[in-house]
Design a protein around this nucleic acid. Structure first.
Lengths: 239, 239
DNA sequence: GAAATAGTGTCTCTCAGACAGTATCTC
DNA sequence: GAGATACTGTCTGAGAGACACTATTTC
């Protein structure tokens, strides 16, 4: 469908680069950790050998949508297929990537501690404690993105069931409370915690689980794995 | 910088289209309204003559960043330079634009009722009550985006000072309460409302304002126009 | 003074946190 | 039974909503 007149078409604009990055959190050894990958050192690669968030270009032939692209990248790096995956935001400007005006669509994901470190030989990856990762000088503007992800996570943990996605099912309430405490960085009252979790009615019993010592505990499963539950109030009013 | 070897460079990927759309809210005549623009009818234009959110392609030569691009589009359509502008999210897939795989970075903005409808002759615009706009069949996936914006706004109004950005300064507490009620679609208790607003300490007195009838009221200004204030709790616990 | 609007005081109920007590498991 | 962990009950204090009351303005 060629146009005989000389017309400036909107699609003739020079197009920015389009990428997707995923901030993947888990809890290992009572620490909140994030997955980083090492940038390749090939010719013309930006930020060679720097640590970065997993991500890359949208492939218009393979990816039906941005979300599908994020899912693909998550699957490639962790093997996890049905995680909690939420959009974090987008960043784009002329200078974040030396190859040109570029945009990234950042997602953030919560997964249970991966069984085996799915050692995809092509990339070097590392599960780094969040605070350490935030202090490293990452590639691109990934410090900004990671910072936003941590902030969003910490904030949402105050009033949502998000931490449940960091645990393998079934999990017990004490285990869940521990995860909340790890992410928030402060202890919570057991009684108040249990009241909130059970009143919210987002858990379903899944039989008793016996630990190493002490009394056995009830195991729970999420009632809906697609959306987190929002609690009516925050922990520690006002704080 | 040509490379003698035949190397597939990442930047050789086919690039999606990159656009920015802005959902601009205001309150007029005790109604929450959103700005829509009519799509042009030129040759090859998608969704000719349909209503759409204001937006368009990122111009890599003019726009330093996505935010700057959104600010430009807002300024062009409303003349407002320093509004409340927040990123809403991004959408992108192979089918939302007939011209090809496209992405949009959506922002949402709150502005006081514009003085004069800045009738930029080049585009037809309309301030449409939100609910009506949401029922129209808009161009692209703009119904989805508008829906997300309304949901985000309504949700944030429950626990933030966002509605203050919908009013010209100085405003009185009764005026502010009216805006809250308009956006939330339900009445609020005067006493509780005032306590919340004043306790949050985000307003600064700006002299008495006398209305048409009745007692004069204290006028207020926002202490910080950059970030909204988050209240410790929501209106109507739990609801 | 009446009408209209702005602003305050008080009561009550709910709910989250504190914390102590009870239950059940392993050794 | 001791130690460890899971779970529950009760008290208390803070805070939001309901609602009635007071204050200040115009006519």
């Amino acid at each position: 469908m060629s146009n005989p007149r000389v017309v400036f078409k909107a699609t003739d604009f020079e197009r920015p680069l389009v990428t997707v990055d995923v901030v993947i959190f888990t809890v290992m050894a009572d620490q909140l950790r994030v997955l980083l990958v090492r940038r390749p050192e090939g010719d013309g690669e930006p930020f060679p050998a720097r640590w970065a968030l997993p991500g890359g270009f949208v492939d218009v032939d393979r990816d039906a949508s941005l979300l599908a692209c994020a899912e693909r990248k998550l699957r490639d790096k962790t093997g996890v297929a049905a995680p909690y995956l939420e959009q974090l935001g987008s960043w784009g400007d002329a200078r974040r990537d030396p190859r040109g005006w570029s945009t990234t669509h950042a997602y953030f994901s919560l997964i249970p501690k991966p069984e085996a470190v799915d050692d995809n030989a092509t990339t070097i990856t590392e599960w780094l404690p969040c605070d350490q990762a935030a202090r490293r000088r990452l590639a691109f503007d990934h410090n900004t993105i990671l910072g936003a992800a941590i902030e969003r996570l910490r904030s949402k943990v105050e009033y949502t069931s998000l931490p449940a996605f960091l645990l393998p099912e079934p999990f017990t309430l004490p285990q869940l409370q521990r995860v909340y405490e790890v992410v928030l960085g402060r202890p919570l009252d057991k009684s108040a915690f249990r009241k909130r979790m059970l009143d919210a009615d987002y858990l379903e019993e899944a039989g008793m689980v016996t630990g190493d010592h002490g009394r056995a505990a009830m195991g729970y499963r999420l009632r809906g794995r697609d959306h987190p539950t929002v609690f009516p109030r925050s922990f520690k009013s006002g704080e």
